[in-house]
Design a protein around this nucleic acid. Structure first.
Length: 446
RNA sequence: GGCUAAGUGGCAGAGUGGUGAUGCAGCGGCCUGCAAAGCCGUCAACGCCGGUUCGAUUCCGACCUUAGCCUCCA
């Protein structure tokens, strides 16, 4: 089976061919800068990477998936000085929440989760390679990448050098030869955090860490198969990565680039200034992780996703249908379903995949073979059925069951007035009843 | 201003050169003491204007609108 990826480099859907003929492939997805709690935008980016990883694992024997944590950045310094929380505590706390949130959302653990602070030496040696290659210069204690030295600058973002200069709303910085040049290493004041380097006490610029961590894991002269991230990273971040990565190594930097669309809230980009940021930790308390995954998958990853109440309610209904079908199938063996996998191999077309699952859920009710495929498919995209997993304390459970028993008595006696009144009472406790042919079943519906 | 996406029924959202998915909501029915769930049926859309074509929502061009990027951002 062939995987097609919409490649930002070529701007079309390309057949994925691994760069080595071996069965091993590698993928890097830009993780978060750990300065504030993860929001659903972070979750969407991680989910896109997660889905690629899950599909790749179906197709290749050995998939190396790298998702970094950026714990050195000016935003972190700002946040630390604003809140008074020391940098190391801030980054450790946020990184910890991020990892916890991602696990809760049923994201597979990446093969590597490198941190910038663990890679300062690698970063310094990458910068040295770029300097040796004469693709960077030193100016006022900064090491600056010389974009003129890299003739392919702008190929990813399809930006022409002149456009960038025209749109110069960037405040000019005297130490740069060209304003589109970017910093690889910058000086730190002694009181700020930094590291000793051949260019003095300082810290890495924004873009170099990804390149350096990738190269340290896959090998400096190897090509990355796939690189992903949010589409707001295309320029300048990924453009700059390509420039650096091409000038510190003899090989092509990366073959396939995918970019997920951003999450909009009320049709606006989430931002702190608009106050419309939705944190993962908030929604995870209110909805089953599978529902959140389905909500994020309801739109194809490349499209912008407008997050509304309907988005999550829709996902809730779909999940309800599927998990109801899969109820009591914990003993059932799973069967791989190539038809489903094929939909995902078409550039991770999750809306089509979800449509397929809904249809399959209907058919599965009276076909055990279809059921075992459905189960496989749900596991594949990380939708687990854990109906009735909502914790109820034993007292509450006893009360509910007593009421149900009382109602059953009333029904047997054809006292429907009382039966209905008890049902109303249960409704206020969020209990939903279903009078099936084999008796009453109930569940908590939040 | 430049660049990149996108505009589909009440809402959300795929897809396609020729009977326009799917889910929610609505409507009708079966089932039920009544519900719930399930099942069956049903209503309803392709921004605007040209062009290509036997035929376009699908291809091409202009226009309008929206979002994002060009400055930190997943």
């Amino acid at each position: 089976m062939n995987l097609h990826i919409h490649n930002t480099l070529t701007n079309k859907k390309d057949l994925f061919v691994p760069c080595s003929s071996a069965k091993s492939i590698n993928m890097y997805v830009c993780g978060p800068t750990v300065y504030s709690e993860p929001h659903i935008g972070n979750a969407r980016a991680a989910l896109t990477g997660d889905l690629f990883y899950r599909v790749l694992k179906e197709l290749f024997e050995n998939v190396v998936y790298i998702r970094n944590l950026t714990d050195v950045d000016d935003k972190i310094i700002d946040q630390s000085s604003k809140t008074g929380i020391p940098i190391s505590k801030l980054t450790e706390d946020v990184a910890c929440i991020y990892q916890k949130n991602m696990l809760e959302l049923n994201m597979l653990k990446p093969t590597h989760e490198p941190k910038v602070t663990d890679n300062i030496n690698n970063i310094i040696s990458t910068i040295e390679k770029i300097l040796i290659n004469k693709s960077a210069y030193i100016s006022e204690k900064h090491v600056v990448f010389d974009t003129v030295a890299f003739e392919n600058y702008g190929t990813l973002s399809k930006k022409i050098a002149n456009d960038l200069i025209d749109g110069a709303r960037i405040k000019p910085e005297a130490f740069k030869r060209n304003q589109k040049d970017f910093v690889l290493w910058k000086p730190s004041q002694n009181d700020k955090h930094g590291w000793d380097s051949p260019w003095g006490f300082g810290r890495p610029g924004w873009h170099i860490e990804c390149t350096s961590m990738i190269k340290s894991i896959i090998g400096n002269n190897n090509t990355l198969d796939i690189h992903g991230g949010g589409n707001d990273l295309i320029f300048p971040h990924h453009e700059n990565e390509i420039a650096q990565g091409s000038c510190c190594s003899s090989s092509k930097y990366c073959n396939y680039w995918f970019h997920n669309g951003i999450v909009l809230v009320n049709k606006k980009k989430m931002s702190k200034s608009l106050g419309n940021v939705i944190l993962v930790s908030d929604i995870i308390n209110r909805y089953d992780p599978s529902i959140i995954r389905l909500a994020l998958m309801s739109t194809h990853y490349r499209q912008p996703l407008n997050w509304t109440d309907d988005t999550i309610n829709n996902a809730k209904n779909i999940y309800e249908k599927i998990s109801r079908t899969l109820n009591n199938t914990s003993q059932l063996d799973v069967t791989r379903d190539d038809n489903f996998l094929e939909l995902l191999c078409d550039d991770i077309n999750t809306p089509n995949a979800i449509q397929y699952l809904i249809k399959q859920a209907k058919l599965a009710r009276d076909d055990i073979k279809v059921m075992s495929k459905l189960k496989y498919n749900c596991q594949l995209i990380g939708i687990v059925s854990n109906r009735n997993s909502i914790e109820i304390n034993p007292n509450e459970k006893q009360i509910i069951e007593n009421l149900i028993e009382k109602r059953e008595m009333a029904r047997k006696n054809k006292d429907f007035v009382q039966a209905d009144s008890i049902r109303d009472q249960l409704t206020t406790l969020s209990v939903v009843l279903e009078d099936g042919p084999s008796g009453v079943t109930w569940k908590i519906k939040r």
